[in-house]
Structure formats: C-alpha cells, structure tokens
Write a protein that binds this DNA or RNA. Structure first.
Length: 764
RNA sequence: GGGCGAGUGGCGGAACGGUAUACGCGAUAGUCUCAAAAACUAUUGGCUGCAAGGCCUUGAGAGUUCGAAUCUCUCCUCGCCCACCA
C-alpha cells in the first residue's frame, strides 16, 4: 500500500499537464458556450501571498467545474506591472524598477505553477511592456480626441513623500494609501479623464443589467452621488450703489429650494472667489488657517469655525438682508462652494447658527424661488497624472506654438526610457531626461518642443486589461474586435471588495467609452461579479509583518501540499467571509485527503444498493450546484459526508471514479493521480465530463416524517416513499405512535397540517 | 451622520418558513503501543433526572404563522465602505 506524498505527485502532474497542454484554451472544444472566468490581475509585489491563493483557488475550482460541464472556459492571467511600489522598492534597493518587476513576475509565475490552476498563460498581459502600454497611449489619444482626456488645473491631493498627486479614491483617512503620509492640498495642473460625462450611465439601474452584488452597486451609486437641485442667486447688498445695473450675486446650490424662506445666512468656502475680494485682516487670517489645515485635520475638527465677512445678500424669497459667513464646513469643490444656510432644517447649519448666535426661523417648505435646475455629482473627474517614472508616458507633446499636440498614432509607442534618474525631486523623473524630453513638434515641426513628462495612473492600465487577454499580441487595435465579440463580456469576475469604488468603476467607464467608439457592443464588461473576503491571521487580526501573524502559502504547501491548501481555502469559510486562518483545521483537510487516498485500496466488485445510489446522486447534485453558485465550503462538506459514508462500506469502482471527478476541481493533483492509479484510466480526470445525477435516485426509499403536536417535535416516523402521497395513511401511523398519542391524549384535533414527505402537525 | 452586511456550540461555520447546531477543528474516554505520535472507535449546545425522559436554547424584546435562526417592527452589539456632498 502506497502512502500519500503530495509533493511527489503534485510536481509530477504539474509537469505532465504542462507538457500535454491539457489546459490550452480552445474555443472549438466543448459542447456548451464560452465561459470567460476572470480574476483581478495581481500586482507583482514579489511573492504570492495567501490573499492571492484565496482569490485564485476557488475561482479555479469554479472554472474547472464549468469546463468539465462542457463550457469552453477561458481563464487567463497577467500582471499589473507598473506602479509606485516598484519604484519605491527600486529606490530603496538600487535595482531598476523594470528589473525588479520582471524578476518578481518570474518568481510569482513559478509560484502560480505550484497552485495547480488551469490558467492558460498563452493569454496574458504584462502592463509594463510596450506591447501593452502602446495601447494605453492609443486609448488616451482617442480620449483626448473626444475631449474625455483634458488638461486642467485643480486643487489636488498631494502626497509630499511620494511626490505625486493622488486620486480621492486613494486616500485613506487623510493619508496616502501607499506610504501612509499625510496628504496636503496643492494646486496642480494635470491630466483628467472626464468620467463625469458618464456619471449617469454608470449609475446602476433598478433592476441591474448584470449580476453584481448589491454592495457594489449601491456603493458605486453612492460614490457617483447624483443629486438633483437648483442654483439660486443671492444679490450682494452694495449700499453705495444707486442704480440697478451691475448687480452682483453669490450663487448657491441647494437640493431643497422649498426651504429658501428659512435661509437666514449664507456660508461660503474659504477658497471661494468672493472671499478673496474682502481685505479684512480677520478674514484672510481665517482663510490662511483653514488652508493650512490638512484634509485630516478638517475632518477631525468637528466643531464648526467661521468668520463674518461683513457683507450681506438678499434672500430672494423673503427679500430680507442676510449675512455672509466664511467657514470650512463648506467645501470648495462641491456645488458652487457656497450654501444658503437653513438652520431650521439642516443639522449642520443649526450647529453653526447656535454657535454664532444667528437667527433660526421656521421654513414653510413651500418656497418657490426662481433658479436654474441643476444636477450635481459627488463623482469628480479622474486625475490620471502621476509625477513618477514607472508608468505609461503620456503621448502628448507640448509645443510653444501649437500647445498640446497628440503624438501621431503611427509614432506609438512613446517608449519609457530605461536610464532615468527616478529618485523623487519634486518634478517628474522623465523631465530630467533632456534627450528624451526634446522633440520636434509633430504638427508644426518646431524644434524644442517637449514631451509630456508625466505618466498615467496605473488604474488606467487595469481598466481594460481583460480586453487585451483575448488577443494579447494583436497589433492593429487594443484588441481584436472579433475575438472580443466571441469571448466578452466576462462571465464572472472574481476580486476584492477594495475595488468597488476604484478599479471596477473605471473598468465600467472604459467599456462605455469603447462602446461609444464602436469597439464593443455591450454596456457592461462583466455579467457577474463575485467578491471574496479576507483571510485574517491566526490571531484574528489582519495579517501584517509587524504583527508577525503572516501565514506564508509556500510554507503550508511544503508541509501539506497544494491540494490540502486549496481544499482548506474552499472549505473553511464562505467565499465572501472574513475569517482567521486556523493551522489546526488544515490538518483535518490533510487527514481527509489521506482517507480519500486510502479508500482507493478498498475498491471491490460490488453491486450498489439504492441507498448507495441515493448518496452518490445527491452528492453529485450538491457539489455541482454549490460550485455553480460559489458556495465552495458546503460543496467540500458534501464530499466529506459522502466519504464518511463510503468509509464504512464496500466501495465500487463506479463510486470511486465518480468521487474523484467531484474532487478534481478542488484537489486536481490527487484526483488525477488516483484516477490513473486506482481507477486505471488512461485519460486525465480533468478532461472528463462532470457526472450527471438522475432525479430518480435523489429521493430516499424510506422517508423520515416529522410528527409535531402544536408545532412541537414529538416523534419521527419512517414512511415508505410509495405511501407519502396518502395523507390518511401517514396520519394513521402518526396518531398511533405512542409518543404522539401521549400528547394528543384524547384531545380534539382541530387541524392537521401535512407537508408531503416532510412533516405532519396536529393542532389540538 | 449615510450606505451595505452580520450576530447560531469552546472555535470556523451548516440549515427552500418545517428534525437547529450538517461538515471540520478542538475536547473527553477507549483500542493499538514498553511509551509517545499517528490511526481507529465512541461521546461532545445548556439545565435537570438513577433512568426513560423532561425543559430550555440561534444578540434582546414584541409581532405574523399550525410552525420562525429564517418574514415584520423596535432596540443592542460588531464588521466593512463612505462621509461637514448642502
């Protein structure tokens, strides 16, 4: 009797599968339609961690199940290879970001192999290679052409350590999501994408067009934050002026124009242009103080502060003069940067009014001021400029005569030069490379024009990578339209909840832009989104090096084998849950696989009883249904239950063969090994069909009927399946049960509820 | 403050409105062993009882129902995301 040595068989089969190419994607092979199985592409940080395993393994089990069920499953993967961490690591260690990144990709690709997935690496994309980022530039130029990409100036989140602008989405509690330093506000000229043009299209309709989790749909809708309201003009009171000409106004945005009669003062943001005109010392001091505050401090500082400007405006509904105040609780970036304060109806306004003793009067909620209807969005245009080296160069030339000139398509790519001093200096690293920087203007031919020295946000790269996968070497367009129409949209997109407001929203935006260009025909790039949870450290905290609670998958694989790790990840929690790793529980999984292994020794020639068949067919159904609906934990539990059943009886070859097919998506190596050595098959288990269950075997011969009196369980009785339709028979049997008779005890039976094959309840 | 979600054994977690605690971990006892590990067998929600059994139990409380972990309402606690968005 051989023992289960995972290491040997796993390495053997990984090699064999590779050589035989059993996972090569073939659109022609399979009885059913295509199935695009996608997992968020990983960042090449150095090593695969447990999070990667948790993202990919259940997704792989799902893909394998779909493939065995006859779908033509497309499961590619790539690397999101540009970005700050490479640059920071490179600066720290003195290695070039490209070398660091490519080395990590090599390491991680090797680690991926140990996972035993069916990923077909012939379809892949590495975003830092010119073959990929050429098409970033192409898309950018199309966006520039359509006015979606534009150069603008804006107060921006600036990370002083990383020396770059940050998108709103990348600030966590006022700090840079990468380095954790405090973000400050700085006026910077930069490239934007007009995602706000698509704000309405990006709002999820009711009912949704695609199967995305409610949490994501609601989250995105809130982030887009559409609000309908009105722009109202408040005339500035100018005592010196006699005539009616040249009136000046402060414009406010409100969603409740009906409360205008309760507006007893106006508040403007410190950055508002009205404030700059007032020269009072007190005011400029307040403004300076507010501007010096970091985002962090403004948020922490819940006590309202402010100063009176000394100016008044006229409430258009009441005609009364009301004072204008400055306060930083009004945001410069939203609406018009000025509000009418209705302390009676708005809690924040009331707080302010109470603190500064301003009048609070009742509103009728019936006011009808004149104004322009206006829809405001919380969503801002997406800042894509990064003043860093390791990214896609912006394909624009700055010419003194022509201004912003796009690099002609035929001259793409604008390659990222290798030898550049990329240590932070307060200006983009590419701007220090004079030789690269200086070009002739592509439009007028003037010498001394300059390339744009900024690089694109890496979220630009990842907003469309899944299109590239289908034709990774295509040279005419970002992707082969015919391939995309065959394989897209993605059927299921696995990933983490941290991408609700960033990545997945951008990806949807790009798809809508592609549709406008006529490149695709669908509205959503993914039909279904499945979000996994987080594996915490054994101590229940998030894994971190500083806590010392990090579990390294390589170590666990070395101890138990990949199949055990895979099965454990599927079994220990629902896919969307966040739960701690348990080093005890994984040994139970290893024990389980050893029992599956040993069961192979027991195969005999035996006839299957009806209950054997029922058990088998029920398990086939349960495991298949659960794999289909991403309930991996209960699928594994069903396999365990069947194993417990098989362990105490004689096992037929048919049962064992079926067992291995059901196990194959979860534990591909051991299933393959036993399929050859014990079932004596010449074929790979992974090329077999998923077993079919038959309805006739799903019902047990003897049914256990629950007998209740007044809804309380009093007995269970066994009834032949053939008799369950006969209520009188069942009722007779139930009444005659001693334990039930005790409770009925001659009382009047007022009502009998019979649920066929399940339960009978006497109401007395 | 807003949104989404969750509260079930010692732990991770199962349960189309119909036998709550599947499956796994852990624990206890036993078999095997010189011993230990491994493996195997049995027990394992609580209270009560010699036992048969009885009663209670899904964060708290109410409601709907023949019947509620599941549906409704109120409250409490926790998690995630967003947040002075007018």
């Amino acid at each position: 009797m051989t023992r289960y040595f995972p290491k040997e068989i796993e390495e053997k089969w990984q090699k064999e599968w590779q050589e035989q190419g059993i996972y090569k994607f073939d659109l022609e092979k399979g009885s059913k339609g295509k199935y695009y199985n996608l997992v968020e592409l990983p960042y090449p940080s150095g090593d695969l961690h447990l999070g990667h395993w948790f993202a990919f393994v259940p997704a792989d089990a799902h893909a394998r199940y779909k493939r065995m069920s006859g779908y033509r499953v497309f499961f590619p993967n790539g690397f999101d290879a540009f970005g700050l961490p490479a640059e920071n690591a490179a600066i720290k260690r003195g290695i070039h970001p490209k070398d660091w990144t490519m080395k990590n990709i090599e390491t991680m690709t090797g680690q991926f192999a140990t996972m035993g997935t069916m990923i077909d690496w012939d379809y892949s994309a590495i975003t830092c290679l010119p073959e990929y980022y050429t098409w970033n530039q192409w898309i950018f130029l199309k966006m520039f052409e359509k006015g979606i990409a534009y150069r603008g100036k804006a107060l921006s989140n600036w990370c002083p350590v990383d020396q770059t602008v940050l998108a709103n989405e990348h600030i966590e509690g006022g700090r840079c999501w990468r380095c954790g330093s405090e973000v400050v506000q700085k006026e910077v000229e930069q490239w934007f994408l007009k995602i706000t043009d698509y704000a309405d299209e990006l709002i999820w309709s009711q009912p949704p067009q695609a199967q995305w989790p409610r949490q994501v749909r609601e989250g995105q809708n809130n982030w887009i934050g559409r609000s309908e309201g009105m722009l109202l003009n408040f005339e500035i009171v100018e005592k010196a002026r006699k005539d009616n000409k040249n009136k000046e106004y402060i414009q406010v945005f409100t969603t409740r124009p009906d409360t205008t009669d309760g507006a007893t003062f106006l508040v403007v943001a410190p950055e508002h242009k009205f404030v700059a005109k007032i020269l009072a010392k007190e005011i400029s001091e307040y403004v300076r103080k507010a501007q010096r505050k970091t985002e962090m401090e403004r948020k922490e500082d819940r006590v309202k502060s402010g100063v009176f400007t000394g100016k008044y405006v006229i409430n258009p509904v009441t005609g009364k003069e009301i004072p204008v105040w400055v306060s930083d609780y009004v945001l410069a970036g939203y609406g018009t940067g000025a509000i009418m304060a209705v302390p009676y109806a708005d809690e924040r306004d009331r707080e302010f009014a109470e603190k500064f003793k301003l009048p609070i009067i009742k509103t009728s909620f019936k006011a009808k001021p004149k104004g322009e209807k206006k829809i405001n969005y919380h969503l801002r245009d997406w800042s894509i400029s990064r003043q860093r080296y390791w990214g896609t160069p912006v394909p624009i030339v700055h010419c003194r005569r022509c201004g912003l000139v796009p690099v002609p398509f035929k001259d793409l790519p604008v390659e990222l030069p290798y030898n550049v001093d990329y240590t932070p200096k307060g200006k983009p690293p590419l701007a220090t490379d004079e030789e690269w920087l200086k070009v002739k203007c592509p439009r007028c031919g003037t010498e001394g024009a300059k390339r744009d020295a900024e690089t694109l946000d890496t979220f630009f790269d990842s907003a469309w990578y899944f299109y590239r996968y289908v034709s990774p070497h295509f040279g005419d367009l970002p992707f082969d339209k015919s391939k995309v129409s065959e394989l897209m949209p993605v059927d299921v997109y696995f990933g983490g909840s941290e991408h609700t407001l960033g990545h997945t929203l951008y990806a949807r935006f790009f798809t809508k832009f592609f549709k406008n260009l006529g490149l695709v025909k669908f509205d959503e790039f993914a039909k279904k989104r499945v979000q996994h949870g987080v594996i915490l450290g054994p101590d229940g905290n998030r894994m971190s090096k500083s806590r010392g609670n990090v579990v390294n998958p390589d170590d666990v694989v070395r101890e138990y084998g990949a199949d055990t790790v895979r099965l454990y990840l599927c079994f220990m929690m629902p896919y969307e849950a966040t739960s701690p790793w348990s080093s005890g529980a994984i040994s139970g999984i290893y024990r389980f696989l050893k029992r599956v292994w040993d069961l192979g020794e027991k195969i005999e020639k035996v006839d299957l009883t009806v209950s054997d068949l029922t058990m088998m067919h029920k398990t086939i159904k349960k495991v298949g249904d659960d794999l289909n609906t991403f309930q991996f934990n209960t699928a594994v539990a069903a396999l365990m239950t069947w194993l417990n059943y098989l362990s105490v009886k004689k096992v037929s070859k048919e049962e064992y063969e079926t067992y291995l097919r059901l196990l194959a998506p979860f534990a591909p190596h051991i299933a393959e090994e036993l399929y050859h050595s014990k079932v004596l098959s010449a074929n790979s288990v992974h090329l077999e069909n998923w077993p079919q269950y038959q309805d006739k075997y799903l019902v047990e011969e003897m049914l256990q009927i629950v007998v209740q009196v007044n809804g309380k369980l009093r007995d269970t009785i066994g009834i032949q399946n053939s008799e369950v339709k006969n209520q009188n028979y069942v009722q007779d049997r139930a009444v005659n049960s001693e334990r039930v008779a005790k409770y009925l005890n001659g009382q009047n039976i007022r009502k009998v509820i019979y649920v066929e094959g399940k339960l009978i309840n006497f109401v007395v």
